[in-house]
C-alpha cells in the first residue's frame, strides 16, 4: 500500500526523484505528499501539459511549498516539465527551487513557501471561476497539518464553509508535524465550519481517489490524508528535499 506499483503507471517516479536528490537510499516513501500528488495528477485533475493556460482546467495549488521534490517528479512524469530540469535543483539557472515559483514552472498554479497562503488563494480562485460561469471546474489546495498553525488558513476555512464554496477541495497531508497537535482531529476544524470531510490512509491510492472525488454539490470538501509521522522519516525527507529551513520541513 505504501509502495508505488506498476499498476499505478508510476514506475518512473523513483528514478525521477533520485535525479532531484541524488539519494539512492530514500524511496518514494520519504515524501509525504507523493501518493496524493500522483493520484491527483493520474486520476483526478482535469489538466494536461497542453492545457496549463486553459481557463476550463482544474486547478491544483500546492500551499505547502516545502519539499516540492515529489511535485516536480510528478510534473515531469506527466510531461509538464522536461525531466532534465530535475538535475539542477535550486541551481543558479534552475527553474526548480526548494519552493516552487509559478512564473518559472509550467503547470504550477501558485508560488508558495511561506505557509498559509494557498488556501486563501484557492478560495479566490474558486470565486473567480464561479464569477465567470466556470462552475464545473474544481480547485484543489494541498496543505500540511503543521501549516494549519497559520491563522490565515482559519480565515479561509471559516469563510469557505459559511458561504458553501462547493468547488473547493482542501487536502491536508497529516504527518503529525504540528508542534502542538490538533486535539479532536484535523477534520473537525473544517466540519464545524460546514465542510464535508474524509480522512484516509495517505498511501492508499484507491482510497485517496475516492476521497478526492467525494465532494458533494453544496459545500467545500476536505481530505485528510494520514501518512507516517514526520519523525519516522524526517531525516530522509530533509536530505531528500534539501530543505534548508528545518523549522518548516514536512509542515
Amino acid at each position: 500500500m505504501s509502495v508505488m506499483t506498476a499498476t499505478d503507471s508510476a514506475p518512473t517516479l523513483g528514478p525521477l526523484l533520485r535525479r532531484l536528490t541524488g539519494d539512492e537510499k530514500h524511496g518514494p516513501s520519504a515524501h509525504s505528499t507523493l501518493d496524493v500528488l500522483w493520484v491527483l495528477y493520474d486520476r483526478v485533475l482535469r489538466v494536461t501539459p497542453d492545457r496549463v493556460d486553459d481557463p476550463e482546467r482544474d486547478r491544483f495549488l500546492l500551499s505547502k511549498g516545502h519539499g516540492p521534490a515529489a511535485y516536480y517528479a510528478v510534473l515531469a512524469a506527466k510531461g509538464f516539465i522536461p525531466a532534465d530540469w530535475l538535475d539542477d535543483l535550486a541551481g543558479p539557472a534552475s527553474r526548480l527551487g526548494h519552493h516552487p515559483d509559478r512564473l518559472l514552472v509550467p503547470g504550477v498554479e501558485i508560488g508558495s513557501g511561506s505557509l498559509g497562503h494557498g488556501l486563501g488563494l484557492g478560495v479566490g480562485t474558486a470565486l473567480g471561476l464561479r464569477a465567470q460561469g466556470l462552475t464545473d471546474q474544481r480547485v484543489y489546495v494541498l496543505l500540511g497539518d503543521a501549516e494549519l498553525d497559520e491563522g490565515s488558513n482559519h480565515e479561509a476555512i471559516a469563510y469557505a464553509g459559511a458561504t458553501g464554496l462547493r468547488s473547493l477541495t482542501a487536502i491536508v497531508v497529516d504527518n503529525h508535524s504540528a508542534s502542538h497537535g490538533w486535539p479532536g482531529g484535523i477534520a473537525s476544524r473544517f466540519t464545524v465550519n460546514g465542510w464535508s470531510a474524509t480522512t484516509v490512509d495517505g498511501r492508499d491510492h484507491d482510497a485517496l481517489e475516492a476521497a478526492l472525488t467525494g465532494h458533494d454539490s453544496h459545500r467545500p470538501h476536505v481530505v485528510v490524508a494520514v501518512v507516517a509521522p514526520k519523525d519516522d522519516y524526517v531525516s530522509g525527507a530533509r536530505s531528500a528535499d534539501g530543505a534548508g529551513d528545518a523549522d518548516q520541513v514536512g509542515a
Binding site: 481557463p55 473567480g128 464569477a131 491563522g151 490565515s152
Partner: peptide, 27 residues
C-alpha cells in the same frame, strides 16, 4: 459573485484578491 465581503479577515481579503486575479478578474 463579484462583490465579496469575507468578514473581518484581511489576510483572506488579499488572498481572495490574488485568486480572483489569477482567474483573470480585476479585483
Amino acid at each position: 459573485d463579484r462583490v465579496l465581503n469575507v468578514g473581518i479577515r484581511e489576510q483572506l481579503m488579499l488572498g481572495v484578491a490574488g485568486g480572483l486575479a489569477l482567474t483573470g478578474l480585476r479585483p
